[in-house]
């Protein structure tokens, strides 16, 4: 399986993602934002970081970069696109995903482990995953997901909410909401479920001794679903 990670000026989780993808069997290529063609890929990843220094709004400048039109075309033709953290922000800025990531409610940069509950596993990202509560890491200042009431209703009606922040035993409540995200939303899909954006970082959870292995479960499962 071939994957590509797009590097923007200011991306800083691109190499972690490269390590994670290769560890679980992807043949990964790094793609510079100023290129206009994507290599042949089964998965495109927009990594975390601070693309273009978070100028204007997080992800807004990256959302207009040269490579993005190819990513949009790839996504619209059904290709699998994963946006983590800043990648999620970029996906909302391109319009591929609904809503926006606002500043955290407590105006603090949050860096900690959280639990997320997988809400929809009828898609290539989570199908057959053997756990429905996963421990991932978050590190963001703008992770407070917001959308209009109509958009929220359509996300719920089409089962587009990918994951909710929850407690270790899977309870979705205010206490386990780290950033004020509407309805505890940690990640969403597009309507066809081939695009996933989420704030938590699975690529930081792939080492038994350093972090725990819920990210390993995510990537092992993903590549199995793509084969």
């Amino acid at each position: 399986m071939n994957s590509s990670v797009i590097i923007f000026p200011g991306s800083n989780c691109d190499r972690d993602m490269d390590v994670a993808l290769k560890k679980f069997g992807f043949k990964n290529k790094m793609v510079w934002h100023d290129d206009d063609k994507l290599p042949k890929s089964d998965l495109i990843v927009l990594p975390g970081g601070f693309s273009y220094g978070d100028y204007l709004r997080c992800g807004s400048i990256a959302g207009k970069s040269k490579i993005i039109q190819s990513v949009i075309d790839f996504a619209n033709s059904g290709g699998l696109v994963l946006g983590i953290c800043n990648g999620f922000q970029i996906l909302t800025e391109t319009g591929l995903l609904k809503g926006v990531l606002q500043q955290n409610k407590n105006i603090e940069f949050i860096c900690k482990n959280v639990f997320v509950k997988i809400n929809n596993s009828e898609n290539k990202f989570f199908e057959n995953i053997d756990k429905d509560v996963l421990e991932f890491h978050i590190a963001h200042n703008e992770g407070n997901y917001f959308c209009s009431e109509d958009e929220l209703k359509s996300l719920e009606d089409n089962n587009q909410i990918a994951a909710y922040y929850c407690s270790s035993d899977g309870k979705v409540d205010d206490k386990s909401n780290p950033n004020g995200a509407i309805k505890n939303i940690a990640g969403i899909f597009n309507e066809k479920k081939n695009i996933l954006g989420m704030m938590p970082h699975p690529e930081r959870m792939i080492d038994k001794y350093l972090s725990g292995e819920d990210g390993s479960k995510f990537f092992e499962n993903l590549i199995r679903n793509l084969k």
Binding site: L56, R57, S60, K64, T92, E93, G99, V100, Q102, F146, C147, S148, E151
Partner: peptide
């Protein structure tokens, strides 16, 4: 419309 404002918010 295209860049300076995100009309969602």
């Amino acid at each position: 419309k295209k860049l300076l404002a995100n009309q969602v918010i």
